[in-house]
Amino acid sequence: MKDFFRRRIVQPILNILKQGMSPRKLAATVAVGSVVGIIPALGVTTILGTALAARFRLNIAATVLISYLVQPLQILLVIPFIKLGIFLFGMSEFRLTIDEMMDMFRMDWVGALGTLWVANLAGIAAWSILSLPVGFTLYFSFLPLFNRFLPVATVPVEVTTEL
C-alpha cells in the first residue's frame, strides 16, 4: 500500500513539480500556490493561481496543484480570516456564531447574505494584507531546501575556436 501510494500519487506530483524548473521558480511556484490556495473565497483559486502563474512565468499546472493541495487549510482558515478582517476594520456589529447566523437567515435571508458577503470581503482583505509576508516567508523558506535537493540544470557551453 505504501509503495502504491508513493508510485501512483507522490512520484507523479514530484515529477510535475520538478519539470524543468529551477529551485527559484519552484520555490516561487510553491509560495504562490500556497498563498492563493488559502484565500477565503471559495472557487477563485484556479483562476487566481493561473493568472499569477502566467504573469510571473511559473508552471501553471504546478501552481494550481499546490493551491489544490493546501485547500484543506483554506477551509480551516476561512473563519479566522473573517474574524481578523472584522477586527482590522472595526466591524464589531458582525457576529459569527452559528445560532446568530441561522437567526439572521430565518428573519431576512437576503439581508443575511449581504451581511455575510461584507464579512467575507473583510476576510479577503485580511488575507490580502497577510499574503505578501506569508508568500515571501514561504519562498525564502523553501529556496534553500530546493537548492539543496534539486539538481541544478547545466547549460551546455559552446566552445568556438577561431583560426
Rank of each mutant, 00 (worst) to 15 (best):
Val35Cys: 09
Ser34Asn: 12
Ala51Ser: 11
Met107Pro: 01
Phe56Met: 04
Met107Ala: 14
Gln74Ser: 11
Ile98Cys: 05
Val44Asp: 00
Leu121Thr: 08
Glu100Arg: 07
Ile129Asp: 09
Met104Ile: 00
Leu69Phe: 10
Leu130Tyr: 07
Leu69Ser: 11
Leu58Ile: 05
Met107Leu: 09
Leu96Glu: 15
Ile60Glu: 13
Ala31Met: 07
Ile47Lys: 04
Arg106Asp: 08
Ile98His: 06
Leu69Met: 12
Ile82Met: 15
Phe87Leu: 09
Pro72Val: 04
Gly33Gln: 03
Val35Tyr: 05
Ala126Asp: 13
Gly85Asp: 15
Val30Asp: 06
Ala54Trp: 07
Met107Asp: 13
Ser34Thr: 10
Arg55Thr: 14
Met91Trp: 09
Ala119Trp: 10
Gly114Ile: 10
Leu130Cys: 06
Asp99Ala: 03
Ser92Asp: 14
Met91Ser: 11
Gly114Trp: 15
Phe105Trp: 01
Leu58Glu: 00
Ala119Lys: 03
Ala62Leu: 01
Ser131Pro: 06
Arg106Val: 07
Val36Met: 13
Ala41Phe: 08
Phe81Met: 15
Phe89Glu: 07
Leu132Gly: 06
Thr46Leu: 12
Ala31Asp: 06
Phe56Ser: 04
Asp108Ala: 02
Ser67Glu: 07
Ile66Glu: 08
Ala61Val: 15
Ser92Cys: 04
Leu130Ala: 13
Leu65Met: 08
Leu88Gln: 05
Ile39Lys: 00
Met91Leu: 13
Thr50Val: 05
Met101Arg: 01
Ile38Val: 13
Arg55Glu: 02
Gly49Cys: 01
Ile38Ala: 10
Ser131Met: 10
Val110Lys: 10
Ala61Gly: 14
Tyr68Ala: 14
Leu42Asp: 07
Ile66Asn: 00
Tyr68Thr: 10
Met91Gly: 11
Ala53Phe: 01
Gln71Lys: 14
Arg106Cys: 02
Asp108Thr: 08
Gly85Met: 03
Val36Asp: 09
Ser67Trp: 08
Asp99Trp: 07
Val30Gln: 00
Thr97Pro: 03
Phe105Asp: 01
Trp117Glu: 12
Phe81Asn: 09
Ala112Gln: 00
Phe89Asp: 01
Thr45Asp: 15
Leu76Arg: 07
Ala54Asp: 08
Trp127Thr: 11
Gly123Ala: 06
Trp127Tyr: 08
Ile39Arg: 00
Asp108Arg: 05
Ala126Val: 04
Val70Tyr: 13
Leu121Lys: 03
Gly49Leu: 02
Glu100His: 03
Ala41Asp: 00
Asp108Trp: 02
Asn59Gln: 00
Ile86Pro: 01
Ser131Trp: 01
Met102Tyr: 10
Val118Ala: 11
Ile39Glu: 01
Thr115Trp: 05
